[in-house]
Design a protein around this nucleic acid. Structure first.
Length: 803
DNA sequence: AGCACGCCGACT
DNA sequence: GTCGGCGTGCTC
């Protein structure tokens, strides 16, 4: 008798271990390590899925149960990937199964409860009316609930089951399956030719003969769908042919293809700088430098370098992964890769349907696609002979997962490549401080490209002091200079982009008389006024409020609207330039699927003169005709209490500025700010990353922030504020005992910058020092203390945001 | 996390 | 004597 060790699908800490199950004889030859199985679990023998991680002859456990069934016909994860998952679970302190899940394309299984009636005594139907809908055949509980339009209580089901009135069973089903399509073929060529000859004149058999003729010509299985489309025949025609035994049908698996169009992207001749970069990367790689930071200004042709490197690796039989920040925002990049590599490339990202993702995953798994392009999660793709990973725009925060395990795709990439001695390329025009620091210290190979491949010139940037605008009596969101430039560019029929970091009309509403500020009742957030639905809305919980005509506190009439968002910019623009055609791109205008693309296309086609938008417009978009970019306000981003605020502001200014002057005409950028002397804005205006880096790295050192230390951010949340505060302080006591270690420092507890979201209160600790060493230790302390409380917690090393 | 078991009080 | 409330402890 063989025994299988199974890791079950759970993120519960107590269940995160191997459970042994017996393998029945009929499954002995089928079940392998790395296979998904269904097992009975717990006292109720509830069916649950898991992965076989070991097969052995003997188990310590008593009363072993049998594996119930297998889920896939073959293994879905190999041994080395299982090892990798184990490492990940240790690093990020998540369950083994949660780590394994990262490598799989499936979402959870669908659980269906089936129910049938065994006893038809009338006496029970008075109390349990749903019994009337049951037959002595299994039916889905969900269907009954829909019929009677209410939930059936579990306790009722158990009661009836025990009395022997009903039978209840549960099944687990896969949500996605391989897609099959019908193909047909002639059974016997000779007989078919004879049939056609004999019935040539028969008008009634015209359609049937047309099908047979195509099949004879093709000499192979042909997709039924294709015949139906091209010959305009119906299913009855084919049925007749099947009945006559002239054709036979079979099912073949087809892939659901997420990219419908066929792109062609011709090979480009590289310039000298690009050639040099590739030589440099490869020779460093041969000398053991397995990470290169490719620091290339916008437009320096990094993508061409990536493509060339991939081609080189492909020739040697190696696979590659390309990570890009967010696929939906950069469709052009995907098009370019698809155009160059065709079917060899697979696309993976969260917007795919489950079926599409499953099929792309399997194309990669089978080795049919050797290259993968995708967002963060694509770093886990089962690429065969993986030897190269490229992280484009490596500074982007989207590479860090915001759900547990809170991995950083760049770290996972390193981990994966370590085991196979592969090459990692981190590419950016504004590298993260951390990566550039490592490159300068020699930990990474550094390759820099300063010239733009298309000979374009970086736009000229002007900083406008909004304080002096105020002094001049200009209370509008636009400075005089910006208004003049907009007018000029409109006149010249150029396009304009206006960037503002907030959506909505006014970002806060307050009373001039008493200082009251409209806040969300459930969140510690000021409400934003939206013009389109004339309401105040909370951007954290989505709640809408009616606008008060009088101050709710002092009843005065002096309610005023402050701060500007995209809506306000739009209305103001329409006031100043009534003839200008304006498009707005923010969360409000891109709610429906494809809206983002539509606005992008419309602006690119020249259907509008001005595009107003939030962060969304900063990424990837390539508009040739934009000559003016206005950054309406940057100060709010710059002044957030977060050690990455300066870095983020610099990157944002650089990215938004990069939208100007991408075509023939040169571009201009105007930054409006209340602190024009701020060095971050100054450096950004000169496109001077290096000086910015020198400035920022000093700040990081001074404040003891990454990359000089690691930060462990501990967030505690609860609906019960009193208990939260009490437990937080209790935790501080425990942490106090640890600080004797000297290599670790605890800051807190303190309420978060946003101290309440959706009625959940938030407190935090910021822990600095050798946090990786103490991570598991700290986790255990927090877990033990909060285990039986109503307080939840999350931990994150070097988080993207600490608000 | 579920789920069953078991101990306790309330009630026909 | 039965029902249901929740505290406890286990899950191969």
């Amino acid at each position: 008798m063989k025994i299988a060790s199974v890791v079950i699908n759970t993120s519960v800490k107590e269940l995160d271990k191997k459970f042994d199950y017996m393998i029945s004889e009929d499954m002995e030859d089928i079940i392998k390590v790395g296979m998904r199985v269904i097992v009975p679990f717990g006292l109720g023998n509830k069916l649950i899925d898991g992965i076989v991680v070991d097969i052995k002859e003997y188990s310590e456990g008593e009363n072993l149960k049998y594996i119930y069934d297998i889920l896939d016909e073959d293994i879905i994860i190999d041994n080395s990937t299982l090892d990798l998952a184990k490492q990940i679970s240790n690093i990020y302190l998540c369950s083994y199964y949660d780590a394994i899940k990262l490598f799989l394309p499936f979402s959870n299984l669908k659980r269906t409860v089936l129910i049938k009636r065994l006893n038809f005594d009338e006496i029970y139907t008075d109390e349990y009316d749903f019994l009337n809908y049951l037959k002595n055949d299994y039916i889905q509980l969900e269907k009954i609930e829909r019929l009677i339009n209410k939930k059936i209580k579990k306790t009722q089901l158990i009661k009836l089951y025990k009395k022997g009135i009903i039978d209840v069973k549960e099944v687990l089903n896969k949500v996605v399956k391989p897609k099959k399509e019908v193909v047909i073929k002639v059974t016997d060529e000779f007989i078919v030719r004879e049939f056609i000859e004999k019935n040539k004149q028969n008008k009634r058999l015209e359609k049937q003969i047309s099908v047979l003729e195509v099949l004879l010509k093709r000499q192979e299985f042909v997709l039924l769908k294709e015949l139906v489309d091209t010959l305009n025949v119906s299913s009855s025609t084919l049925k007749a042919l099947l009945n006559k035994g002239l054709i036979l049908k079979e099912y073949v698996e087809v892939y659901r293809n997420p990219i419908k169009d066929n792109y062609v992207y011709e090979k480009v001749v590289l310039n000298q700088e690009q050639e040099n970069a590739i030589d440099n990367i490869l020779s460093a790689y041969r000398n053991g430098k397995r990470v290169t930071l490719l620091f290339g200004v916008t437009g320096s042709g990094k993508t061409e370098i990536y493509i060339n490197l991939i081609e080189k690796f492909l020739l040697e039989g190696y696979g590659a992964i390309v990570l890009i920040p967010e696929i939906s925002l950069t469709p052009q990049t995907v098009e370019r890769f698809k155009g160059r590599f065709g079917d060899k490339i697979a696309v993976l990202h969260s917007r795919l349907s489950d079926g599409e993702r499953y099929d792309e995953w399997r194309r990669i798994y089978k080795g049919e696609a050797q290259i993968v392009i995708g967002a963060r999660s694509a770093v886990f793709a089962p690429v065969k002979n993986l030897k190269l990973i490229i992280v484009d725009e490596e500074h982007e925060h989207t590479y860090k997962s915001e759900i547990t395990p809170k991995y950083d795709a760049r770290d996972i990439a390193k981990l994966r490549l370590e085991n196979v001695n592969g090459l990692l390329i981190l590419g950016s025009a504004t590298p993260s401080i951390e990566s550039y620091f490592k490159a300068k210290n020699g930990e990474y190979n550094l390759v820099e490209i300063h010239k733009r491949a298309n000979k374009g010139v970086l736009p000229q940037v002007n900083i406008v002091d909004m304080r002096s605008e105020l002094k001049k009596g200009n209370r509008s969101v636009f400075s005089q200079v910006l208004l003049e430039e907009i007018a000029l560019n409109l006149e010249q029929r150029n396009q304009i982009i206006l960037f503002i970091n907030r959506r909505g009309h006014s970002t806060f509403v307050s009373c001039r008389a008493c200082g009251y500020v409209a806040k969300c009742l459930d969140c510690d957030i000021t409400l934003t006024y939206h013009y389109y639905n004339n309401s105040l809305s909370c951007h954290y919980c989505g709640k809408n409020y009616i606008i008060p005509s009088k101050c709710p506190k002092c009843k005065s009439q002096y309610i005023k609207y402050f701060g500007a968002g995209t809506e306000k910019v739009e209305t103001e623009i329409k006031k100043y330039f009534p003839k200008a055609r304006v498009l707005r791109m923010d969360m409000d205008t891109t709610r429906y699927k494809g809206a983002h693309e539509d606005i992008y296309r419309a602006f690119k086609n020249g259907d509008a003169d001005i595009l107003i938008g939030t962060q969304m417009i900063a990424k990837g978009m390539d508009f040739k005709n934009v000559t003016l970019v206005g950054i309406i306000a940057i100060d709010t981003i710059l002044n957030l209490p977060d050690y990455k605020a300066a870095e983020r502001a610099f990157q944002l200014i650089s990215q938004v500025s990069g939208r100007a002057g991408r075509g023939e005409k040169s571009g201009k950028v105007i930054i409006q700010t209340y602190e024009p002397e701020n060095p971050v804005i100054q450096f950004a205006s000169f496109h001077d990353y290096k000086s910015f880096y020198e400035y920022e790295i000093k700040m990081r050192q001074l404040m003891n922030n990454p990359p000089f230390t690691d930060i462990l951010y501990l967030l505690l949340t609860s609906q019960n504020e009193q208990e939260l505060i009490k437990k937080s302080h209790e935790l501080a006591q425990y942490f106090n005992d640890m600080t004797t270690s000297k290599d670790i420092e605890f800051l807190g507890p303190s309420p978060c910058y946003i101290s309440k979201i959706k009625n959940v209160f938030r407190w935090n600790f910021v822990i600095k020092g050798n946090v990786k060493k103490y991570y598991a230790n700290i986790y255990q302390i927090v877990y033990n203390l909060l285990n039986s409380s109503n307080i939840s917690f999350t931990m994150d090393i070097n988080p993207v945001s600490m608000l």
